[in-house]
Design a protein around this nucleic acid. Structure first.
Lengths: 257, 257
DNA sequence: TAGTGGTCTAGACCACAAA
DNA sequence: TTGTGGTCTAGACCACTAA
């Protein structure tokens, strides 16, 4: 029996959104499935329709659900949200591209990071991070080289995890209940250094796409600094549906009397 | 006197959103200004509070407005939305980076584009486009090389415009009342060809960032295919605040009883 | 304390899709 | 025709901010 806590400090719509997110994650609602109608959700969770709509709005904005006027609300087909400005792990990203992700752990070490990293993560002097360097493959061909610094205090347990072929984000969510919320990243082009070229199996100086930035939790705390380089012959980054609630009303005809 | 048309096919919240957008664009509301409160807007436009909120939601999602709990709603400071996943013209992009944009027209010609462009724009066989090729400067130093194809039928008047130092998007909006709504773009890294290197004043083979895609109007029609290359030593692309209405409730403390 | 945005309710009527 | 999401109203109480 689904239950929301009326006395929680968390708003009802937010609790409902999390409940729905959960169902999708657990596969109770599969990709493409129609979920309960807004009026059914009202009944099920004993809330008003606008509260239901606020919750569904959240997931629609995240790209997890899609509304179809007159038909219902559906779990978004992942192929539909391919490459949108969502926060994806390498693992998820590759799966969506129908490539088999794998990775090789090159280094993993608790350390005090360099000054720029400290600054970007907002660390206290001397605060430790877990550095993880991995080479990542798509269908067994090198695709990306990645170095991440995770703030140890936020998730000490990460040190003992095997990160060889697992998505760190999945481990964080499933084992530690930590959900990442957003990232501030930049993308730039560069030429592969000798080391990078060797690892990625391209020529020195070959163009690479560099993505680097900081990943944040829902409560605003930073958790990770990451820098990934991608072979430009195998990877393009897509920016897509800028989901604007203002994209227009359902009736899109712009008919003016 | 502000007026909304109750009998328009356009929803009230949408009309109100446009009205507010207009005021911001015209400078009636300046950057950083507090706008009328939600209750004042109710009175002014004779609509309910949720309609006002729906309208404001639109502009908040676009990054034009920002709410501050307990204080009011403000016209977003452009420096705050720097580099977010908004649709920006080169002109606007450079201004936000505090660089002076200018451009040199290299070519402008009505033509029937190549097959791939035709397909991506969904053109009928033989349909014409306006091809515009420009070299773009930031503080008088070459920054980007751009080639765009505008569907002629959507905006025939564009042919006669001087596009040397103007933002095409501003011309479209201000002279023709055409607003672009979204884009589907990809970003990749590449090496500069001999021609590109010469134009951008870098070495042949230097890394460049390539952004290409299709731009759409609010009604879903495509209007432009664009391809821009940027000097990677002068330009990084930032992806930022993924504005999720689900980022969390105002009270962000996650306190559970 | 007064005013703001944040959340929520309980209705209502509409346009749209599918049967 | 029935059920869906889309829009809208008229309230209410809350938490937050600034005076």
């Amino acid at each position: 029996m689904p239950q929301l806590n009326k006395f929680s400090a968390l708003p009802l719509y937010f609790q409902l959104a999390q409940a729905l997110r959960e169902k999708i994650r657990k596969g109770e609602y599969a990709k493409g499935d129609q979920i309960a109608s807004e009026r059914e959700l009202m009944e099920l969770y004993q809330v008003s329709r606008s509260t239901v709509r606020d919750a569904v709005d959240c997931l629609v904005n995240e790209g997890l659900l899609a509304r179809k006027h007159g038909s219902g609300t559906f779990v978004a087909d992942p192929t539909m949200k391919l490459g949108l400005m969502r926060l994806t792990s390498f693992t998820e990203d590759m799966r969506e591209r129908h490539l088999e992700p794998s990775s090789m752990l090159i280094a993993k070490e608790v350390q005090i990071p360099s000054q720029p990293i400290q600054t970007q993560l907002g660390l206290l002097p001397g605060e430790q991070v877990l550095m993880v360097r991995r080479l990542r493959f798509a269908d067994s061909i090198p695709m990306s080289l990645n170095i991440s610094y995770f703030i140890l205090e936020v998730c000490p347990g990460l040190v003992d995890e095997n990160l060889e072929n697992q998505s760190v984000y999945e481990v964080l969510e499933n084992k530690f209940g930590i959900r990442i919320a957003r990232a501030e990243q930049i993308i730039r082009a560069d030429s592969a250094s000798e080391y990078q070229a060797k690892m990625l199996n391209v020529k020195t100086g070959a163009p690479i796409l560099v993505i680097e930035g900081v990943v944040y939790l829902e409560d605003g705390r930073p958790i990770e600094h990451l820098c990934s380089i991608y072979r430009s012959d195998r990877y393009v980054f897509s920016i897509n549906p800028v989901r604007m609630s203002s994209a227009g009303p359902a009736n899109n005809e712009m008919v003016e009397p």
